[in-house]
Amino acid sequence: MDIIVSNLCKSYDGKAVLTDFNATFPAGKTTCLLGRSGCGKTTLLHILMGLVKADSGEISGIPRKISAVFQENRLCTGLSVGRNAALACPGRLSPLEIIAHLEEVGLAGKELLHRPIDTLSGGMQRRIAIIRAVLAEGDLLLLDEPFQGLDPRTRLQTMAYLQAHTRNKTLIMVTHSREEAELMGGSYIEMQ
């Protein structure tokens, strides 16, 4: 089912962030949201996630199961890499399955599995946040600049991983890079 956003408005302290925003996000496809900083991309994602209430407007077609990569990693400090990666997974995963996912994004899985998440670099943590979103098996993936902090090679590898594991799922991705949007395929919306 397509996600349809109609006449969405949101303002913070009298400053309008979204004004009569309309968009259709086709089911099973990738849609990238492009635009300058402060144009309301993250606000729109937060509204779709149910974290922020819109002032007015309508949204339909949001599935029950949502996965997300937030602007910040939002990983559980203190927990191991494996625990964080499998946190939102509905079923039980074996260590080998997690290791396979880690290796797909260029991380030495076996060595990392039991390491506390806070001992990892920013780029490594970012990839764990992406794996967590993939393993959560959501029907809709909301991604807020998912590849930030990754070097070009790792970025491509992680993109390939994301595409391979989210076939036929609805993806809405915020990005500043048109190149990233093109590489992820699908359509894109320029937000004003």
Binding site: L51, I66, S67, A68, F70, C76, A136
Partner: peptide, 27 residues
């Protein structure tokens, strides 16, 4: 709060939220 929001978005079951989001922070 951001971690709790993450649990809300992923619709984590209450026991998982308690074990993996709250208890480590209360340690």
């Amino acid at each position: 709060k951001k971690l709790l929001e993450m649990g809300q978005v992923f619709r984590l079951p209450p026991l998982r939220r308690l074990l993996f989001l709250s208890l480590p922070q209360l340690k």
